[in-house]
Each structure stands twice: as C-alpha cells, then as structure tokens.
Computed example of a mutant assay.
Amino acid sequence: MRSKLNLAALGAGVLAVVMLLAVLVVRPMEAAAWVYTAAFFVGLVGVALAAADGLHERHQRLAFLP
C-alpha cells in the first residue's frame, strides 16, 4: 500500500520525465530552457517528497540542523 506522500512523489517524478521529453519538441530554445528548468524543480520536489515519505515510514521527524 502506497502512502499519499509516495504517490505524490511518483506523480512528480512522472511529470518531470514528461516535461524533460517535451524539451525535445519545444521551440524556440528559450522556451525549452524554461521547460527544462521547471522539470528540474518538479523532480527536486519529487525527491523531497520521497525523502519525507521515507522518514515518515520510519517514524522519524524531518529536521534541519545547522
């Protein structure tokens, strides 16, 4: 059974891959650069959600230490 965080991470990953594939067909190149940048950030959110889900499954808190 997948948690909501895990499903959200999976969805973000799939969206990032679709956006990266769209870079191949988007013209002009400036627009393709914006799509690539957005895909990077969507993928980054997906990784963060997957990490948060992993912490949640182990009953640990997410903490940022200096």
Rank of each mutant, 00 (worst) to 15 (best):
A63V: 13
E30D: 09
R2D: 13
R58D: 02
V35C: 02
L55D: 04
L49V: 02
T37Y: 13
L20G: 02
L20I: 08
S3D: 07
L65R: 13
V42D: 00
P28R: 04
P28M: 09
L20R: 03
E30H: 11
G46E: 01
A52H: 04
R27N: 09
L62V: 08
V17G: 02
Q60C: 04
A63P: 02
L5T: 11
R27G: 09
L62F: 14
L62Q: 01
L62A: 11
V18G: 13
H56E: 14
A48M: 13
A50F: 15
A16H: 02
G43P: 10
S3L: 12
G54Y: 07
A39T: 06
P66K: 07
L44F: 15
L44N: 11
H56T: 03
M1A: 14
F41L: 13
W34L: 10
N6G: 00
G54P: 02
V47I: 14
A38M: 04
V26L: 08
A63K: 13
V35W: 07
A32T: 04
V14D: 06
A52G: 02
R27V: 08
Q60P: 03
L55E: 07
G46C: 01
A38T: 02
V42M: 07
L15R: 00
M19V: 11
L44P: 02
M29S: 13
V18M: 13
V18W: 03
A33L: 13
V25E: 09
A32R: 07
L10G: 01
N6D: 00
G54D: 05
A63L: 12
H56I: 01
R58N: 06
L20S: 02
A51R: 06
F41T: 02
P66F: 02
A38F: 01
R61W: 04
L55Y: 09
L10C: 00
R27Q: 14
G13L: 04
H56A: 14
A38D: 01
L65N: 11
K4G: 05
A38Y: 01
R27I: 03
A48T: 06
V17E: 10
A63I: 11
V42W: 08
V17L: 15
L55W: 05
A33G: 08
A52E: 06
V17Y: 10
F41C: 03
R2V: 12
A52D: 04
A63T: 06
N6P: 00
V23Y: 15
V14T: 07
L44Q: 07
G11L: 15
G46W: 00
A48I: 15
L49R: 00
A22G: 08
M19D: 10
A33R: 12
Q60T: 07
L15A: 13
E30M: 10
R58V: 08
V42F: 08
E30Y: 11
A16N: 04
A48H: 05
E30F: 15
E57D: 14
R61G: 08
A63S: 12
P66R: 12
H56L: 09
H56M: 08
V35H: 10
G11W: 07
P28D: 04
A31G: 04
L21M: 11
L7M: 12
V18H: 03
V35Y: 00
A50W: 14
A16W: 03
A12C: 10
A48C: 06
Q60A: 14
V26S: 08
F64L: 15
V45D: 03
T37G: 10
M1V: 10
A33S: 12
A48E: 15
E57K: 15
L62Y: 03
L21C: 11
